[in-house]
């Protein structure tokens, strides 16, 4: 079992629904996001266009973040890269090691860096954000808690363009493996040699 994801950049509208769904699902405090959508302009007026690419943790097979972790807090599991929050000492070696900028260090007490500035924490923050701990490193988990319940990661379910496919890279009959093959999808930044589990089709 090796979980992976396919993202079709021809379909992605850059609408950011994935970021907000991720925010909601994981209850990340303050302005912390696991999921991102990067935007850039290509060409010059009038032959210009907008390119968008959703990113996050690439769940690499040969992950520098796992290698540099001095306490073994980052680990592999069913093709996913996860962080054991009990072990993380917040040294941030992994933040620097990740070639995709996927990791974030939690600088603040989750109930002090609030959604609505200058207001009380919302009941949602008290229930969800409060579970995140200051002084540790966080990142996309492929919504492992949902996957274990047989659900799709939040970003995959919510994607209005249905640009994302989630599945098992080890299963040759899975929709994921088929679409990666059909669309000749490839990872970002393969030169880094990290063997990502997120594959993109379309131009980037």
């Amino acid at each position: 079992m090796r979980y992976g994801m396919f993202i079709d950049l021809d379909r992605c509208a850059g609408c950011t629904a994935c970021i907000v769904a991720c925010k909601q699902e994981n209850g990340t405090p303050g302005t912390l996001h696991y999921s991102r959508v990067l935007v850039r302009e290509v060409g010059e007026y009038p032959n210009a266009s907008l390119a968008v690419i959703p990113t996050g943790c690439m769940h690499c097979e040969n992950a520098p973040c796992v290698q540099v972790c001095p306490v073994g807090a980052s680990y592999y599991e069913n093709g996913m890269v996860l962080v054991d929050q009990e072990r993380c000492i917040g040294c941030r070696a992994c933040v620097n090691a990740c070639p995709f900028g996927a990791r974030t260090y939690n600088h603040y007490d989750p109930l002090k860096q609030l959604y609505y500035e200058g207001q009380e924490p919302t009941p949602f923050e008290q229930a969800k954000a409060a579970q995140h701990l200051k002084g540790t490193v966080e990142k996309c988990t492929f919504c492992v808690h949902r996957v274990k319940e047989g659900l799709l990661p939040a970003c995959v379910l919510t994607c209005v363009a249905q640009a994302r496919v989630f599945g098992d890279l080890d299963d040759p009959d899975s929709e994921l493996v088929k679409i990666i093959r059909e669309r000749n999808a490839r990872p970002l930044n393969p030169e880094a040699g990290t063997v990502p589990h997120v594959f993109y089709a379309g131009s980037f």
């Binding site: 994981n26 069913n78 996860l82 054991d84 929050q85 988990t141 492992v144 098992d168």
Partner: peptide, 26 residues
């Protein structure tokens, strides 16, 4: 119970390390 139940249902390919990950309700 929900987690344990679905783990069984998902069959033999599954094995999760006994560690904690954010966004799992304490």
């Amino acid at each position: 119970t929900a987690a344990a139940g679905t783990l069984a249902a998902l069959g033999g390919g599954w094995r999760f390390a006994e560690r904690s990950v954010f966004a799992q309700k304490a």
